[in-house]
Simulated scan of single mutants.
Amino acid sequence: MNDTIKMMLNHRSIRKFKDDPLSQEDITTIIQAAQMASTSSFIQAYTIIGVTNKAVKSELAHLSGPQPYVEQNGHFFVFCADLYRHTIAGTMEKTAVTTSLESTEKFMVAVIDASLAAQNATIAAESMGYGICYIGGLRNDMEKVSQLLSLPDYVIPLFGLAVGIPDTQSDQKPRLPMNSIYYENTYPNDTHTIYTDLESYNDTIANYYNERTHGERQDRWTEQVSRMLNKPKRTDMKKVVQQKGFLRD
């Protein structure tokens, strides 16, 4: 097992960072690594916003939860699905592109491109000794975040990435066992097997929380996710996404 894989297998979210900013050289390296991620048809449908304005970071921290580590970190990146520059490309080439850009397919491409770039950025940052935490809470109010970052139509904020020197070392949550997420050739049609695997994983997670909280918490994984999914969240998202020019076809 090489050092890169060891580092990836040691990943955990960091939610408390030292008050040390990233150097411009490290920021540049992280962005360059992100840019080398795979991209569908070379479309490169994403933009990364580095937020350094303290007032804006404070507002993003509030909108996200509040989550103080959005404000207190070495550097905060916002990854956006971006098809705006492609509207300009169409204008430059006198080619109609709007129908394609507003399709579900290109929305998926932009989201996937941004996600691949972000994971490259994460691996680069962690290889440099930094910790990271993804911030999906930016989607609590995509419209407000768009206004704060002056995002034009065809650009939407997907998530943030807090990066910095860890001030504490978080526990690593056990993932689903491999046989629950990797199947060969076809998806299993044996519900009993999936049920049995989840029961086993429930025991693993309950033990994890029990040890971590000294017996104060013992909830199971299926209990946790079912509770979370019981009430839909961010139900205005489709409206905001469509207002920005995505998912109209």
Rank of each mutant, 00 (worst) to 15 (best):
M7S: 09
S13C: 05
K16I: 04
F17N: 12
L22P: 11
Q32K: 12
T39E: 00
S41N: 13
F42W: 11
Q44P: 01
V51A: 07
N53D: 15
N53K: 12
N53F: 08
N53A: 12
V56R: 08
A61T: 07
A61H: 02
L63F: 02
S64C: 07
S64Q: 04
Q67F: 06
V70N: 02
F79N: 08
F79P: 06
C80N: 06
A81H: 08
D82A: 15
R85T: 12
H86W: 14
A89I: 08
A89W: 10
G90F: 08
A96W: 01
V97Q: 00
T99G: 10
E102C: 06
T104H: 04
M108G: 01
V109M: 00
A110K: 07
S115M: 01
A121I: 10
A121Y: 07
I123C: 06
M128K: 15
L138C: 10
L148N: 05
L148Q: 04
I156D: 01
G160M: 10
L161D: 06
A162P: 08
V163G: 07
G164S: 11
S180D: 09
I181D: 04
Y183C: 05
E184I: 06
Y187I: 04
P188F: 11
P188K: 10
D190F: 03
D197T: 04
E199W: 06
S200C: 01
T204W: 01
D219S: 09
S226K: 14
L229W: 09
P232R: 05
K233L: 08
K233E: 07
R234P: 01
T235W: 00
F246C: 04
